[in-house]
């Protein structure tokens, strides 16, 4: 078990390193730079700035500088605001984590409940309604959904403020973020539950004289959870990338919006730091979901 975790940890470091390398070189391949504005600064000032941040050196050399700094724990300062990157990430991640965490939990809880109900009441009205809406939400991308929610609930119905710095309502962004994974989990739970309910061991459970609730919640649900747990890793990935767009649409200063503005500003240290942070998060989430998998399915062995 510990050997397995250690092995996965080693692999995770390799994965993150590859991500860092690819991001660094593609980022530098994008035309433009952090100090090229519509109003061009004095060439002398620009040259000084570039020299200060090693931007005048060849890209592989820059990469070397970046890596050595990174291993010392120094992620640099934002080329846009001049603030310490780690501090910015800490602040914005708190917001993103709250948003994404609630969205993920809501998606998981609602998805499991709705999916189980749809499976048990298969072909009933409730099942059909659930399947109609989940198909809809699985098909609509989050940026369209976010924009539509903003349009309908903030502008047309005016139930929520479009934006206010003081009382930021997280309801709509969470909804925009959670609807897709919730729908996906619902569909996944339904099909896996239907599959499990047709298994021989469910017939065995019924033939023992167990009550239907016990058959479903003890014997069926735990088996039906297995494919849902497999989706946990991708779910975290979706929430992270989804929040890039949703945070931008709802102008929430989370990690996602820092990442997006970082790219448009060619704020290299910001892009790198957010990428590293997100990929570490992703790798850890996948590892955790694999470990949970082992808890639920005794057939999984790490040896």
């Amino acid at each position: 078990m510990w050997k397995y975790i250690l092995k996965r940890f080693g692999l995770a470091i390799v994965t993150v390193f590859i991500i860092i390398t690819i991001t660094f070189f593609t980022m530098n391949a994008i035309p433009g730079g952090p100090f090229e504005k519509e109003k061009a600064p004095d060439p002398a000032v620009k040259a000084l700035l570039e020299a200060r941040f090693h931007l005048d050196k060849p890209v592989p050399v820059q990469f070397w500088y970046y890596l050595t700094d990174m291993f010392r724990g120094d992620f640099g300062i934002s080329l846009k605001t001049g603030r310490n990157i780690m501090q910015t990430i800490n602040e914005s991640f708190a917001i993103s984590a709250k948003l994404g965490g609630i969205a993920a939990l809501a998606a998981l809880a609602a998805g499991l409940v709705l999916g189980s109900i749809a499976a048990i009441m298969r072909n009933g009205v409730f099942d059909r309604v659930i399947i109609f809406f989940t198909t809809l939400f699985v098909s609509v991308p989050s940026f369209v959904l976010a924009t539509l929610l903003l349009l309908v609930f903030c502008l047309k119905l005016a139930w929520f403020p479009v934006w206010s710095a003081e009382s930021h309502s997280y309801f709509l962004p969470i909804l925009a973020l959670a609807l897709y994974p919730m729908s996906y989990i619902t569909r996944l739970t339904k099909s896996s539950m239907l599959d499990v309910l047709g298994q021989d061991y469910i017939r065995t459970a019924r033939s023992k004289g167990l009550a239907e609730t016990k058959v479903i919640f003890k014997h069926a649900l735990r088996n039906a959870l297995i494919p849902v747990i497999t989706y946990m890793g991708p779910l975290v990935a979706y929430i992270l990338t989804g929040s890039l767009v949703v945070e931008t649409v709802f102008t929430i200063g989370g990690l996602g919006s820092k990442f997006v503005t970082g790219i448009t500003n060619r704020d290299y240290p910001m892009v790198m730091a957010t990428t590293i942070f997100l990929s570490v998060l992703m790798v850890v989430a996948t590892l955790i979901s694999d470990l949970i998998y082992k808890l639920v399915d005794p057939k999984i062995s790490f040896d």
Binding site: A205, R206, S207, G209, A211, H219, N223, P298
Partner: peptide
């Protein structure tokens, strides 16, 4: 009927490989 099943009339099935719940 539930108190009949497993207590007064029991049944065993064809395929023992799939008739037991794999997670318990």
């Amino acid at each position: 009927i539930r108190s009949l099943r497993g207590e007064k009339i029991s049944i065993i099935f064809q395929d023992p490989m799939t008739s037991l719940n794999p997670v318990y």
